[in-house]
Design a binder for these strands. Structure first.
Lengths: 280, 280
DNA sequence: AGGGATGTGAAAAGGATGTGAACTGCCTCC
DNA sequence: GGAGGCAGTTCACATCCTTTTCACATCCCT
């Protein structure tokens, strides 16, 4: 009964460990680099990959709406690529994608240029040549600062799956606007699974991520909580199956309405099939 | 702690939350510089003064709680002053005052040192000698990044919710024009919750924003103040519920009047749609 | 069929929150 | 200078909710 995984993302496939990761973030940082310096890009990409971040390398300026659709956390850009239009690009990006961390990484520059760049909205300005570790550290610093800015889970967008709506800002899931009444652990479990992009997550990984420490052999907590979540969802979204068991492995999230006849007696299946994979 | 006032004006009393908060920069940036390099400090102070910022120059390390009471937005520090204890100081400040922007400005350093500093929580690392304009631009960039998310002066606009009217200009809440008589912290707490747009705020976030520094485990201050605020509101607006508890997470603000005519036995009372917020 | 893995229900254990009150430090007023 | 009040903190206790644990049923793969 093994099932195939979901489609690949535009980003380099992230390892499971990076999804479950060490608690740096709700997930790995999504980073884009705009540069043509192949040596620099290669070295940086290697380090970024080691960090478990997702990355994209661009050699030309994307449109602002493309940047938005990439759902980036940070952008590293060499303004030299753009010549005179660099300032314009920088200003436009900073204005149209205010949540995006912008780090300029470019060759030698004057104080006046750096000040201008920072004033236009850049978050940092690094002078080449530079060490990739420093670039990474500065990206981290900027992203960290950005997340601290807004209390509450403004960073996570709601996920709609089948009749379910998972809202990180409420630490709660809803069906038809009504709260499922999940506890914190239950919610985190569901949230983790729903954001795994259809992958099967192993028990140990789930436990590690939701409970925060390593699972001891024989611990049934994950199973018990999966049951609780299933029950609570079933009460409000009968007929649907969201959490699938993979024997000997773990669990996988995917909304599935068992064929036909018994749709919702009262619940309209309006938002069916609207499952969106988180970001990417 | 030794200290010298570089600007004649002591810091103007300001909203506690504006120190750490998501708030837009209503007034000038409050900056402290820890350095003994009199030449650097003098030149920087001049520029800072021209910007209209408020500043303090310190020549020794203040305690974290002193930093909090200064209500700073940013701190520029030369780690060289501290010798080996510099890392310790940096780590402690960044951890206990998470809302404070920390910019290290120090002499020549290695990549490893800069990476270490940034990882410990510094927001930027500038190498001396440097141009004061660049220091200012970088401080601005960091502070700007932190206050993201609140367009305009929405945070200082009155909020009307249910029978409650929260007036930031008065540091007070009213019911029917009558003051609820909240204390400073009580008001800050209510104001923070009411401006969260219905999101659930975690205790740690609340504490960090209202109290200004990191909450230690076991601190019940948030709970106690929530009770005080609830009591005071209840006296003037009986029947309404404004602050909701989310077990294991924190609190959420949403005005709700229990309908007494249609007591649905087990069904949750419908969520109120009378709650309007300006921003968000 | 056998052994291990998972589903299920309920009781026990563990934590979190509500609440009242004592305690501290600071300020004002007498 | 001291009494009294106010704001904020800390503590103890009651209560409620959550999480863990356990025994047993059921399911799956070999």
């Amino acid at each position: 009964m093994q099932e195939s995984q979901s489609a690949a993302t535009p980003f380099a496939p992230a390892s499971l460990s990076s999804v479950i990761g060490v608690r740096v973030q709700p997930g790995p940082i999504r980073l884009a680099v705009i540069d043509t310096d192949s040596g620099f890009v290669r070295v940086l990409a290697k380090r970024v990959g080691e960090m478990g971040w997702q990355q994209r390398v661009l050699t030309a300026a994307p449109r602002p709406d493309e940047l938005v659709s990439m759902r980036l956390h940070a952008l590293v850009v060499d303004l030299a690529l753009f010549g005179e239009r660099g300032w314009e690009f920088l200003a436009q990006v900073c204005e149209s994608v205010p949540g995006l961390a912008v780090i300029v990484c470019t060759g030698s520059s004057s104080v006046a240029q750096r000040v201008r760049g920072l004033r236009l909205g850049a978050d940092d300005w690094i002078t080449k040549p530079c060490h990739p570790q420093e670039v990474i550290a500065r990206v981290e610093a900027v992203v960290r600062r950005r997340k601290r800015g807004a209390p509450g889970a403004a960073q996570d967008r709601p996920v709609v799956a089948g009749e379910l709506e998972i809202r990180p800002d409420q630490f709660q899931a809803f069906v038809g606007g009504q709260s499922i009444d999940l506890t914190r652990r239950e919610f985190e479990l569901l949230h983790l699974l729903a954001n795994a992009g259809g992958r099967v997550l192993e028990r140990d990984d789930i436990y590690q991520h939701v409970w925060g420490y390593a699972m001891v052999r024989g611990d049934r907590s994950v199973d018990v909580f999966v049951r609780k979540v299933r029950q609570k969802i079933e009460r409000f979204s009968p007929g649907w199956t969201y959490i699938h068991t993979h024997f000997g492995i773990g669990y996988r999230f995917e909304p599935e309405v068992p064929d036909e006849d018994t749709p919702g007696p009262e619940l309209e299946p309006e938002e069916s099939e609207r499952f969106m994979l988180p970001g990417q």
